[in-house]
Design a protein around this nucleic acid. Structure first.
Length: 199
DNA sequence: AAGAAGATTAAA
DNA sequence: TTAATCTTCTTG
């Protein structure tokens, strides 16, 4: 029986959390009892006040980013491009606004077996291979913003970490506006994993 | 009050 | 390469 990751897991260095979230299991329980879940295979670290690519660069504080200022272990969900949601795990402590964007999941066997109908006949490795797609696929919306990642409906379960040799570090996606920070190798994914968004 | 841009996606 | 689509933030 798997355990939910303790809050202490999140209240650490954000890059460490981003790397160690690879392999863990994200679970969403719907009101009707359905369980949608997958193994995390791709993440990105957003390093707060000193990171030009981060929503909280320079301690920018707005209604939207308020969640990032909370203590690690809660979900930060926001709408991007007017049509897609992105899910992040808030890291560190209150007042240290950093987070890990969860970019891709490999669907669990139970989900592949029972919820293929949600995905229009697509191959399973394309179900959740992008930050907007995984929110859509799991039914995560802005209603989940601020929710504990140990809550009954949304949580991350402990599973085996991915070995260092199997983690690939690359520049983050979609942050070209961030100058030099656009090159920082803060995107992490599992080597040879088909469900990664852009191998 | 108005405009610009965005941690994306699917389709051409 | 581009449209879709709208919230958030910046500027006037």
């Amino acid at each position: 029986m798997s355990q939910k990751l303790p809050v202490g897991f999140y209240r650490r260095d954000t890059v460490t959390v981003a790397r160690e979230l690879l392999g863990q299991r994200l679970v969403h329980r719907l009101a009707d009892g359905a369980v949608l879940s997958g193994r995390i295979v791709e993440t990105e670290a957003y390093l707060g006040a000193d990171d030009p690519a981060c929503h909280t660069y320079g301690y920018r504080r707005t209604p939207r980013t308020e969640t990032m200022y909370r203590a690690g272990g809660v979900a930060y969900v926001y709408l991007i491009y007017g049509m897609h949601f992105c899910l992040n795990a808030v890291t560190r402590y209150a007042g240290e606004p950093e987070a890990v964007l969860i970019r891709a999941l490999a669907p669990d066997a139970a989900m592949r077996d029972r919820h293929a109908g949600r995905f229009h006949g697509q191959p399973t490795h394309r179900w959740l291979n992008g930050p907007g797609k995984l929110c859509k696929g799991l039914g995560i919306t802005r209603d989940h913003n601020g929710l504990s990642l140990r809550s009954a409906q949304l949580f991350i379960e402990a599973a085996a970490c991915v070995a260092t040799d199997d983690i690939v570090a690359r520049p983050r996606i979609g942050v070209d506006y961030a100058g030099e920070a656009a090159q920082w190798p803060l995107r992490f994914y599992v080597r040879d994993e088909p469900s990664v968004s852009k191998p």
